[in-house]
């Protein structure tokens, strides 16, 4: 098993040994496509393919379940905002609301499409982040000509997030143990309770950053010498083909969106 940022993945997963640049590009492409594509049928098709690919790529599908609560909250927020605040014209208007907005058949379809776009981003990102190791981010960014210091800092931030999160839970537990009930009170009261977390987290954060600075100095990060690398990644013929394929996919999607209505929301322009 290989430890990635989020979980352990089988060593022989076809995605694990992919060139870091391609892993990052896949993550970017899936999110860009979610923005470009507005056709619900195509979105459903991609989502189904992605879900099936979890098994092929040997990534546990249960990973998505962890985001279930988050997904439900977002889906609810999207649906409610469209139901209460949209003026998308449609063939049938179901309700007219007192503040001037209305719910039409197209409102419902468009809200559904936005939910699908969100799910595509969530499922796609889960799949590609599940196979992302720290070296993938560093080497992937370096392949994109990002300076090592910046690439490393991005990786380190992700790596340190778990430590800061751990501090957050400890401080929050300490408050609960002294009688703080985070589940009660109105929004303002809750905000006031949570604001107390800021002081210890900031102090702990500053201390940890200082320690980290010393550690990085001790590990010679500031050395002026030309840096060498333990790993050498080569794109190879297949990698290059994937790279060209991904670039073409984005270009074609944009072209299709602009020149035809293949990827657009059915019925645009409405009215």
């Amino acid at each position: 098993m290989v430890k990635t940022f989020f979980l352990h993945v089988e060593d022989d997963s076809p995605l694990i040994n992919l060139h870091p640049l391609l892993k990052i590009l896949l993550l970017v492409v899936i999110n860009v496509e979610a923005w470009i594509i507005e056709n619900p049928l195509i979105l459903i098709l991609i989502i189904v393919c992605l879900l099936l690919s979890f098994k092929f790529f040997k990534v546990p599908l249960s990973r998505i379940v962890k985001f279930l609560v988050f997904a439900i909250v977002i889906v609810q927020a999207i649906t409610v905002s469209y139901l209460l605040g949209s003026t998308i014209p449609g063939n049938t208007v179901f309700f007219k609301l007192p503040w001037g907005t209305y719910i039409s058949d197209m409102t419902l379809l468009y809200a559904f499409t936005v939910v699908l776009r969100f799910l595509l981003m969530l499922i796609g990102s889960t799949l590609f982040l599940a196979v992302m190791r720290d070296v993938d981010i560093t080497y992937g960014l370096i392949s994109m000509k990002v300076p090592f210091s910046i690439a490393f800092m991005i990786t380190l931030t992700l790596r340190m997030a778990s430590i800061f999160l751990n501090d957050y839970f400890k401080v929050r537990d300490a408050m609960v143990l002294r009688g703080t009930d985070f589940s009660t009170g109105n929004v303002l009261e809750k905000a006031r309770k949570y604001s107390r977390l800021a002081v210890p987290l900031m102090v702990l954060g500053v201390r940890r950053m200082m320690e980290l600075t010393y550690v990085l100095e001790a590990k010679g990060l500031g050395f002026k010498r030309k840096r060498t690398y333990l790993y050498q990644f080569s794109l190879g013929v297949s990698g290059k083909l994937i790279l060209i394929g991904l670039t073409l996919l984005i270009a074609l999607s944009i072209a299709a969106k602009v020149s035809s209505r293949a990827l657009s929301f059915p019925g645009w322009p409405l009215g």
Partner: peptide, 24 residues
Amino acid sequence: EIQFVTMRVIDEVAFVLENQGMPR
């Protein structure tokens, strides 16, 4: 924990050598 900047023992040991510019 705070002094580990990578996610594998081999990477952690190699990190200081990479910074030193040692051939692979």
